[in-house]
Design a protein around this nucleic acid. Structure first.
Lengths: 264, 264
DNA sequence: CCTGATATCCTTACGGCATAAAAAGATAAC
DNA sequence: GTTATCTTTTTATGCCGTAAGGATATCAGG
């Protein structure tokens, strides 16, 4: 499921995201000093989400990491949605920010997209945080700044630039989502892609004996080239995703190139 | 969140999806006749999901549509994941299957992508059903068959064809997801895009007064062309999504065209 | 018509979730 | 030592999916 984040007080959200001085460390009054801090909690939550996915991310699970109850976290974070925002932004901090411009914008953009792809594979839950209302955290802006620096040299006008940015992100996100879900499904069912497909197509033959007549083009294409593994050690779906990623990226880069030619 | 579907007995799943004779209507034994049927339930569930989103889709909510409890549904459908599979496949039945080939593959593919885009806007929850292990229902195959029929005339080889299919789907899904989430967020917060952005950028200025120095390229791009609404009646994010969709699609089609040229 | 088998459907219950409210416990300023 | 203030736990509410068992309706065979 897509999880919506950031429904709370916007002022507090932004202050948390941008670490505005005010609430955090500076305190001198009576009462116990806070034993935890937001960063620790966000890191722990990211670890939980990396390991157990969005479904395994519960306030209880995060609290347990510190030997606390779920409610203990509410001192540091207003609610789960805010925690998600913080996780989202913090995770993006690990993306590279510097790309050597020498190899040209095309190669640089490829490298950038590859890094983003791997980032999503490392943190699949990131793909499940809604993109509609951007979190607007500092690290998200760093990522955008990085991409824009690469794209700026293409000389595209602002409007085209914005749409290129959107297209690139959506594309990488879309394929990464499928790739990570493939991995997740394998873990969940304990079945390899090949076994799963084999079992399913046997069932398909039983349940739709007239498959070839009903779906002639599908049948023809599957016949032309079924499963062909370049590397036996990598699961089929993951391999196929990676190939589709490369292919689609090349197509997009070609398209950007012709847009450049048009605007020049 | 992404919802995983189809964890039950594969044999039963497929029989349900493909309406294999066996369990359904043919029954003569004792006991009351079933008052509901799977189709009704699936339709009701789709209506619930269309209206209230994936978050609002609960067995209880669907049962209420028939004046029943949640448990009553378990006679017809083994569990919620299966119901989701059935919803997913059934929804796809409303996609067009025939496209006139006259205008050429490029125009036809545009029309197809536009129809898919609108389908996702009508049924945003579809985007939250995992794509990793395809549901393998009849209507999903019809959709694939339709797309392949359009693409077949491009003369691309099977491998490229498969990757093109993947790229097209991911792209449309990716942008549609953002567009539908934008709509959802507006409904949830009761705030227009403009108001939301206005409030947020005021906060941003407060919280990061050095924004322009930290993100010079972002600042420059936003300065070049901020909000520029072509149509005041359509919310900004939705409009922007649509434009990005058109742009990205054109780019993809260009890319396919050059792939054709290369393979010819 | 009666009986027994079989099906649908409901009630109840369990364990999970986020989180509100309030109580308990710790700490530092006075 | 008292008190105000903060962290943390406890308790509770209302959701969720669904397991288990019981109530009820329906039909076949006698």
């Amino acid at each position: 499921m897509v999880v919506f984040a950031g429904q709370g007080d916007p002022r507090r959200s932004m202050a948390l995201l941008w670490r505005t001085p005010g609430s955090p460390e500076a305190r001198t009054g009576p009462g116990p000093k806070p034993a935890l801090n937001v960063d620790e909690i966000v890191d722990a939550a990211i670890e939980v989400a990396d390991r157990d996915g969005m479904a395994g991310l519960s306030m209880r699970a995060v609290g347990e990491r510190f030997g606390r109850t779920a409610m203990a976290l509410y001192t540091y974070v207003p609610n789960k949605a805010e925690l998600l925002d913080l996780m989202y932004d913090r995770a993006h901090a690990e993306l590279p920010t510097e790309y050597a411009p020498e190899p040209g914008w095309r190669a640089t953009l490829s490298a950038w997209a590859g890094d983003l792809w791997e980032f999503y594979l490392r943190h699949p839950w990131v793909l499940q945080v809604s993109q509609a209302r951007p979190v607007l955290g500092p690290n998200e802006y760093v990522v955008l700044e990085t991409l824009l620096r690469i794209l700026y040299r293409t000389g595209l006008d602002a409007k085209t630039l914005r749409r290129t940015v959107g297209t690139l992100f959506h594309f990488v996100r879309g394929i990464a989502q499928t790739a990570t879900e493939a991995r997740h499904a394998k873990v969940a069912t304990g079945m390899s892609d090949e076994d799963w497909w084999y079992a399913r197509s046997a069932l398909l033959a039983q349940v739709a004996p007239d498959f070839a007549e009903r779906f002639p083009t599908v049948t023809r294409m599957e016949g032309d080239q079924g499963f062909q593994l370049d590397d036996e050690t990598v699961p089929y779906l993951e391999q196929e995703s990676r190939e589709t990623f490369k292919f689609g990226l090349a197509v997009l880069l070609d398209g950007i190139e012709s847009a450049m030619a048009r605007s020049a």
